[in-house]
Design a protein around this nucleic acid. Structure first.
Lengths: 155, 155
DNA sequence: ACATGTCAGTTGATGTGTCATGTACTTTAG
DNA sequence: CTAAAGTACATGACACATCAACTGACATGT
């Protein structure tokens, strides 16, 4: 049970905590920004972006879930709330009687098109501007590396 | 208002999305792990760690909020829930009639001491092991850099 | 035809985060 | 001393996430 790697070294702990703290701060900040300017939550934004990323502006919940890396149930609840606010709509799926399409409404498209520039500007101001292009690239590479590692190590 | 930096370049976008995706995956993973092994949420864990980090095992909510970088209200709700489960307790504060102390209960101490090695091992397995020491140090530096930048740029 | 298993998506219970507001105590100004 | 302003924390309402259980549709073998 007791080996050299039971605890994190100070350097490891520092790096880890800084990483966690950073993300929390960024998400909180960007979320508030989004809410203030566009009445959207971060979750709303993700869904709308995923839908605008595809030419028809509509996706099966399965594919949408893959695109944003969410669980089915979370997505279902989220879609229900967004339908209530008129941002997306449900459409029946001809090919598969159990399936549906989630489609961007015109209102939803307006909202995301209004919100995106603000949000991108905030990301740039908070993150991109803090780093040199090299550093940013490094951050991306390290993130990719860990992501791949996590996917390998865990089911 | 229209300048070259209204959108993110593909490289910028890739780095940013990888970073966000990574964090989401890690938090979800570690949260499930913690819940499965110790019946603790990530939030519970943070609070317990902050309390064990201080010798007396008790803190004013103010200081606790600073330690974990949370809003006061979130902390208050969290404390209320943890009291119900017997992990922490409220103590009156002699110096200031409005204040309280949040103190670690013996049960709370047992729980965190049982949970910590598991959690640390998971962090090591998922993150630390994915990187060389150099890369990890770089990740820490970059995180620090952005954190400082965010604190400067925003109130 | 129909029993069985699987798949797409939904729902309800419960725990958590945020915002606005409330309560009680303390500090300060006059 | 007292009225007003500020501080420390709590609370209620609501948005959100997760888990397990559910509904209805497809697919297959007999």
């Amino acid at each position: 049970m007791s080996d050299t790697s039971q605890w994190l070294s100070p350097a490891e702990q520092h790096a880890w905590r800084a990483f966690i703290r950073l993300h929390q701060k960024l998400v909180a900040h960007l979320g508030r920004d989004l809410q203030a300017h566009s009445k959207l939550s971060g979750a709303d934004y993700e869904i709308l972006v995923a839908l605008t990323d595809v030419p028809e502006g509509r996706l099966r919940p399965q594919d949408l879930a893959k695109a944003v890396d969410w669980e089915q149930s979370r997505l279902s609840h989220q879609i229900a709330r967004m339908i209530k606010r008129g941002l997306v709509a449900r459409e029946d799926c001809a090919e598969d009687g159990r399936g549906i399409f989630v489609t961007l409404t015109p209102a939803g498209r307006d909202v995301i098109e209004a919100a995106a520039p603000q949000h991108v500007a905030a990301v740039r101001r908070l993150v991109i501007d803090a780093l040199s292009p090299d550093e940013l690239a490094t951050l991306g590479q390290i993130s990719d590396r860990i992501l791949e590692h996590v996917d390998n190590v865990s089911p």
